[in-house]
Simulated scan of single mutants.
Amino acid sequence: MKNILLHSRLLVLLAGLLLAAPALWSCNTETASTKVLREHEEQMARIDEDTIRNYLTRNNLIATATRTNSGVYVSTIVAGNGTPVTAGKQVRVKYVGRFLSNGAQPGSSGYPASFGNPSFPQGSIFDNSADNRTACGCAVFTAGNGSTKPGFDEGLQLLRKGDRKLLLIPSRLMYGSAGTTGIPPDSALMFDVEVLEVF
């Protein structure tokens, strides 16, 4: 009787493992579309890093720029000494957004097969707080609440009142491979940000 009971428990255990096996195997299986997306993101991460570092080097800013773990670079133009921007705080800023790259498309080697859309020249302005038609020519954001793209939000939280800094942001932390109106896919962006007020 003990052998029958033990045998039946083993059969139940084996049946359970066999039923669970496909779910366990699928956790480690990468679909073709997921693989293509992952490879594209890895290539763009390398391209964006090179693009940002090359910009900083050409403009003699590389020695003073700092890089976050995510890949956002910050270069100081004017160092403020006011209240730091932290999550939940509102910040009034003047900013100009420019293209660092305009939709670089990775080739098979991981370097650009092309450098994007000529309708969006590198260095050209795509956004400017002065165009907001406010008396101060500025904009107000709340830090850390997800109202801005991850790279810009991260950069904001590295600033303080009185700062004027360049935020150089990889495409994956802005509009990624989807792009948006006026910004082609895979565009690394740069913002010249001046913090007027933190409240």
Rank of each mutant, 00 (worst) to 15 (best):
S147M: 11
F199L: 12
A188H: 00
G176H: 09
Q105E: 08
Q105C: 03
L14F: 14
Y73A: 11
L24T: 09
A143G: 04
V85S: 01
L13D: 00
D186Y: 05
K2I: 09
P150W: 07
G151N: 08
L13Y: 03
S33F: 07
L166R: 09
S109D: 15
A45V: 04
S177K: 08
I47R: 05
N132A: 15
A15V: 12
K89R: 13
L17Q: 03
S114Y: 04
R9H: 10
K149E: 01
L100R: 02
L13E: 00
T76A: 15
R98L: 00
G107V: 08
F99G: 10
K89Q: 12
Q105G: 04
N102A: 10
A104V: 05
A188G: 00
L100W: 00
F115N: 15
P112W: 06
I62A: 14
T148P: 01
L158T: 09
K35I: 05
L56D: 04
R9C: 13
P185H: 04
F126G: 01
P121H: 08
V91D: 05
D50F: 13
S119E: 10
R172G: 02
T57C: 00
Y111M: 06
N128A: 05
A87D: 07
C27I: 06
T29N: 06
T134E: 07
N81Q: 01
C136V: 04
G162L: 02
T142Q: 15
L196M: 10
T57R: 10
A79R: 12
I125K: 01
R164G: 03
S8Q: 11
T29K: 11
G110P: 12
G151I: 12
L56S: 04
G71D: 05
D48I: 03
L19T: 13
L100S: 00
N132R: 14
R133W: 08
P121V: 01
A113T: 07
H7Q: 13
F191N: 01
G144A: 08
F120N: 11
G116N: 03
R92I: 08
I77E: 05
R164C: 06
D192Q: 08
P84Y: 11
L100I: 11
S187V: 09
S109M: 06
V72K: 04
F152I: 02
V198H: 14
L14V: 09
R164E: 12
A178S: 15
D153W: 08
A104I: 05
N54W: 03
S171V: 02
W25K: 11
C138M: 09
R53D: 09
A143F: 09
G110L: 11
N117T: 03
A23E: 13
T86E: 07
I4T: 13
R133K: 15
I125D: 00
K94P: 07
K35T: 12
L24H: 12
